[in-house]
Design a protein around this nucleic acid. Sequence first.
DNA 1: TATATTTACGTAACCAGTTACATAATTAAT
DNA 2: ATTAATTATGTAACTGGTTACGTAAATATA
Lengths: 316, 316
Amino acid sequence: MSFFDTVGKFAVGSRLRLLTEKITEDATQIYNMYGIDMNPKWFPVFYVLSRGEAMTITAIAKEIGHSHPSVSKIISEMVDKGLVKEKKDKTDGRRNMVSLSAKGKEITGKIEEQYTDVRNAIEAISANTRHDLWNAIAEWEFLLEQKSLLRWVQEQKKERESRKVKIVAYQPAYQQAFKDLNVEWISAYFKMEEADYKALDHPQEYILDNGGHILVALYNDMPMGVCALIKMKDPEYDYELAKMAVSPAAQGKSIGWLLGNAILEKARSLGAKKVYLESNTVLKPAINLYHKLGFEKVVGRPTPYERCNIQMERVL
Amino acid sequence: MSFFDTVGKFAVGSRLRLLTEKITEDATQIYNMYGIDMNPKWFPVFYVLSRGEAMTITAIAKEIGHSHPSVSKIISEMVDKGLVKEKKDKTDGRRNMVSLSAKGKEITGKIEEQYTDVRNAIEAISANTRHDLWNAIAEWEFLLEQKSLLRWVQEQKKERESRKVKIVAYQPAYQQAFKDLNVEWISAYFKMEEADYKALDHPQEYILDNGGHILVALYNDMPMGVCALIKMKDPEYDYELAKMAVSPAAQGKSIGWLLGNAILEKARSLGAKKVYLESNTVLKPAINLYHKLGFEKVVGRPTPYERCNIQMERVL
DNA sequence: TATATTTACGTAACCAGTTACATAATTAAT
DNA sequence: ATTAATTATGTAACTGGTTACGTAAATATA
């Protein structure tokens, strides 16, 4: 079974399953050794009932981490063996109050020695290991409780993909991409306006030559995102963030976030104190991104764009 | 699910099962995230086949630690999906040579990124733990490979029970037990002889007064084992170990071993250099015990007992 | 008070593995 | 050259869990 050595941690799941099986394997024989007529799978149920109080099926299930049908089945097997007894709750007709029978209670006495021997055996095994399985399990349970494995993997994927993204300065070769990416979303949600055509057809003239900047996000050396920083003639703002567009084909690679940060960094390096932008609240993901980038809503400024219904600023 | 906190390590098995489940749970979604149409349970099979060589069902099963029917089922599912192809071995008609189809090979390329992301995710989780789950599993696998959990528990049981055994010096009150325990095995395997009756009916006179000693093993304060050390008039041997008997009702508590060691210790404290004994090879467990106690076979000595067919000595 | 929602629980169907068993092919031993 | 033992595999039945679903009782709400 060299499998795990070569496949590595990708297969923790499989490996855990095999270990679980190996540990569980001997359980029946261990019960036999102590002369206790009990199916190992009954144990968690037996254990919680051995505290003496009658419990409902669901309460047991919750406590031992099984589904309720599982407990339901276990209980009916235990009833057949005469280990537990059922009783309908008088005040709540749905409840099936389960408790140990006399025969079941008898076992609680006999089983004590088994508990201590098994616990000691496990301690003895642990004493022979350098890594503590019990605590490791507890830690994993806790971490996966906070964030599922799926989420952990998602984060890795995003990070890896974002590493493939390169942010570079605008070059004439990117003019077409700069236009296309913007036309895509503008015409999908609104209507292209005169000012759009000017900036997108002639970025050199209308943006760069006026002291503005454009950054391009490359994914596999293809331009998949663009963003402009336009010099403003305004006593309050130095630059406007505009014409940000990311290809829908390159979603989930944090391109917007990387571009946004890069453009703010650029503004900072140019000595800007505040960056301004205009947008529309129908563009939920965009607004969301702006918030994440630190932009906050402002009011009462004139704008040449019809589609603008929200204005934001970011203090650097 | 406070269960595990109170029951403690007795339930490692259950706890492992739940963790395994939790980890496995997200697997399907992770495959989806990468657009790979594969059932997670196929993965180990897929992985070993992705090395390119055609393999038999049993070879795969052995490598991934499953039973062969499990692999057989997985393969037929994968064949249905067109991921693998089967081919009868020409030189051995029993063999079903399985290998990845073109479609299967295609996945090997796509899945690479998933591998690294999942591995990195697990590394990231591990980086947040103080105890290393992966290595802990490996250590447990190794230890349980050497000795099953059943055996570990058996040892604990034996040790606990042997701690309940007290070895005490003979007193007249134990004469009946001394006789009964010996009569039990002697008459079961052989016939009581004259010398037996003398020693068992009058231990004071025939053993103790002649410079011998008797030790009694108490379990719950009941005499469950006896053993005599008889002074010999012999140039070679100082004492003979004889009349050792342990109640069949007290098996598995190491009473024989404890008695044997105690009696050898006694001999040592009396300045003996060699202890002698006579037995019969039909008494396999007894001979076994003598070996464990360090006795070795000797030949060519006269004996008053008909039933003796083996003689042993222990150099102190 | 009538109605909608929630809760408790049993049953059925499924799932991913297992063991047990049957069969065919190969290999070893007389 | 037989015969016995071993090996490779598939099928069936079992196991210990699950989810899905239905029903009845209790609780919340309009």
